[in-house]
Amino acid sequence: MRLPPILVYVLRRLAIGLVVLFGISAVAFSMAYLLPSDPVTSRYPDITNEQRAEMRRQMGLDQPLVVQYARYMESVFRGEFGRSFGTGNSVVQDLAQRIPATLELASFGIAFGVLVGIPLGLVAAVRRGKPTDHLVRVVNIAIQSVPAFWLGVVLIFLLYFQWRLVPSPIGRLSPMFISPPPVTGFLTIDALLAGKPDIAFAALRQLMLPALVLGLGVVSPLARITRSAMGESLGEDYVTFGRALGLRPRQVVLGDAFRGALVPIVTTLGFVVANVLAGAAIVETVFAWPGIGRYAVTAITTSDMAPVSTCILLIASSVAVTNLIVDLSYALIDPRIRHEYAR
């Protein structure tokens, strides 16, 4: 049986991704155990040494690291990622609650970053060397030099404490509202599906500020790559020829030149998504957002090993999947790459 070449490509990439995840799991596991704190001591600070030794034996912590890793991997393959000491729930259960929160935050943040960053870059490229271009550069530098944790706190201080323009930063939805029945896990969408626009609006108001802070980190890398990639593709012969054929400027600039610039833009977007997942930990902590970032930070500070290694695995796999999607999207963008993959 012959599989279509593109499918072979995807399967090969997935196989490589699996190997990478194995490596990451080993690193994540040993990192968790290299931490100077001891999970038993941090859970039960007042027990005797005998009790501690007994606890360690029960938890398998007295075994060599390799054995512990083998046991851990065995349970991972059974779909068991262990239990969190902190919440008392299984890690899978905890994550199922928290992933939608992070996904909703990240989606709105990235959407904001894309919708602002790419047009900024486009305008700068078309108006290269003109005042607009310089203005965009200044805005970019300004955005880039402001760290998210600082901006988050300042915005909360100004917009909430001082001016009361946004609701208090207490997570996804004010307790005054009842959460809609989960369908997509996105509160804004679920509320609309449940026919409760007021709840959707309330959820959106909660989401606005953290998404803005998270999304600002996306704006300048995207604006910069869009400007430089567009600058290059606007000089391509096919753009000049398109103009010479009397095609509308919009068709030439947005159709051909932008498409020519899209491969580096999408590549950058892939990197940026990884950064957003990392940045989510900070933003979620500042805004008391009940997502995986905050979950991971709490777990690390309490030496809660199972959530830590699972969160690392989860973030690593999402980065791997993002990269695969980025590589596959090249084929959609550029027929030359499509035919290259199909070979």
Binding site: D237, Y238, T240, A244, L245, P335
Partner: peptide
């Protein structure tokens, strides 16, 4: 008015 260029392969849109 129409134009033709030297590098025709580069002048056609690759997409």
């Amino acid at each position: 008015v129409s134009l033709l260029f030297q590098n025709a392969k580069g002048a056609l849109s690759p997409f």
